[in-house]
Simulated scan of single mutants.
Amino acid sequence: MDTAAFLRRIGLTRHDGPSVEALFALHAAFADTVPYESVQYQLGKGGPLEPSAVAERILAREAGGYCFQLNGVFARFLTELGYQVTMHRGGVQTMTRPARVDASHLVLTVHGLDDDPQKAWLVDVGLGDGLFTPMPLEAGTARQDPFELRLRPSEIVDGWRLDHDPRSTLAGMDFESATATLAAFEDQHAYLSVAPDSPFLRLCAAYRRKAGSVVILRSLSLIETFDDRIDSTLLETPADFYAALNDIFGLPCSHLSPAERDQIFARALAQYEVWLAAQNTN
């Protein structure tokens, strides 16, 4: 991996070696500039898992990624910068999905930093509206505006549980203490990236985790959550839709043909209409 190019991609000019402060800066910069997104999956072509291939697309601003891609490439990036990184099998809980660990989420921990060698850190740039900066791998809470996060021992595996803020659609995430490799996530990636019933194909979405807010695109709804308010906008035209992807999420989509852009917007429109119809029947 070209670490200098990747530093520039996330808006940083230098890295002076592993430290707690540097890890926080890298995590925050990555979360703010590389979107968690499923736009790339709307064409039904899938996407790469191998970190070098993911990094190439991120550097070209053709895509962001989801957890396997974002945390996979971040693990490679951190390792090449000199950090000690461990992968773990995880799983998320939502309003419709019970808590379980089935390798549907890739989680990272970092340990052995010279300025705090006894402490390990939860690192996760692939949780959408989750962490903006690392959390100590110990029971406790962290205020990461606009959300309150809590880390505690998991009740379902030998590992840990991250409880998300009630305002998020994500209830929480559990992960194992045991070490995993990227191969442990190949089957889930093969399903989630191309299966018609995958949530990543059924919803065109993008997330940007900022210092004081979270911006989320779901089909045509653009929502930014702050500590004291929620702003929402409906992107009614293709021009508005692609302007938001470019200006807010850093996805210019210039590699897409006009037909592909039309196809993606049509899918997002259909998804929004399905959601709207469901609201009108409730």
Rank of each mutant, 00 (worst) to 15 (best):
residue 232 S to E: 15
residue 214 V to Q: 02
residue 204 C to N: 03
residue 255 H to E: 14
residue 215 V to G: 03
residue 213 S to F: 03
residue 212 G to W: 07
residue 200 F to W: 07
residue 199 P to M: 02
residue 190 A to S: 10
residue 256 L to V: 08
residue 231 D to T: 06
residue 189 H to K: 10
residue 190 A to R: 15
residue 196 P to W: 08
residue 185 F to E: 05
residue 222 L to T: 02
residue 192 L to N: 08
residue 185 F to R: 13
residue 218 R to D: 00
residue 193 S to L: 11
residue 237 T to Y: 01
residue 203 L to W: 02
residue 181 T to V: 03
residue 245 L to S: 07
residue 229 R to S: 11
residue 240 D to Y: 02
residue 225 T to I: 11
residue 247 D to I: 10
residue 247 D to C: 03
residue 198 S to T: 06
residue 229 R to Q: 12
residue 208 R to W: 00
residue 192 L to G: 02
residue 245 L to V: 04
residue 198 S to Y: 07
residue 232 S to G: 03
residue 250 G to L: 11
residue 188 Q to D: 11
residue 240 D to K: 09
residue 180 A to S: 12
residue 214 V to D: 05
residue 213 S to A: 15
residue 245 L to P: 12
residue 235 L to T: 02
residue 195 A to T: 12
residue 223 I to S: 10
residue 196 P to T: 14
residue 243 A to F: 06
residue 187 D to P: 12
residue 230 I to T: 15
residue 187 D to G: 11
residue 255 H to C: 06
residue 235 L to S: 01
residue 192 L to M: 13
residue 256 L to W: 05
residue 240 D to T: 04
residue 186 E to S: 07
residue 212 G to I: 04
residue 180 A to L: 04
residue 231 D to P: 02
residue 254 S to Q: 13
residue 226 F to V: 00
residue 190 A to P: 12
residue 207 Y to Q: 06
residue 178 A to E: 03
residue 190 A to F: 11
residue 203 L to R: 14
residue 210 K to R: 00
residue 246 N to W: 14
residue 243 A to K: 09
residue 218 R to K: 14
residue 207 Y to I: 10
residue 249 F to V: 05
residue 178 A to N: 05
residue 193 S to Q: 09
residue 189 H to Y: 01
residue 255 H to G: 08
residue 238 P to G: 07
residue 211 A to P: 00
residue 237 T to S: 08
residue 216 I to P: 00
residue 222 L to V: 02
residue 239 A to C: 05
residue 221 S to C: 05
residue 178 A to Q: 13
residue 244 A to S: 12
residue 215 V to E: 06
residue 211 A to R: 05
residue 191 Y to M: 03
residue 186 E to G: 13
residue 220 L to H: 01
residue 209 R to M: 00
residue 233 T to Q: 02
residue 255 H to F: 11
residue 236 E to W: 01
residue 241 F to E: 10
residue 182 L to R: 12
residue 198 S to P: 07
residue 223 I to C: 08
residue 241 F to A: 09
residue 179 T to M: 04
residue 187 D to R: 15
residue 212 G to S: 09
residue 178 A to C: 08
residue 227 D to H: 05
residue 251 L to I: 03
residue 206 A to K: 03
residue 206 A to M: 01
residue 228 D to E: 09
residue 188 Q to L: 06
residue 183 A to K: 15
residue 215 V to N: 03
residue 251 L to H: 10
residue 234 L to T: 15
residue 251 L to E: 13
residue 226 F to C: 04
residue 209 R to P: 02
residue 178 A to M: 14
residue 216 I to V: 07
residue 189 H to I: 06
residue 192 L to Q: 08
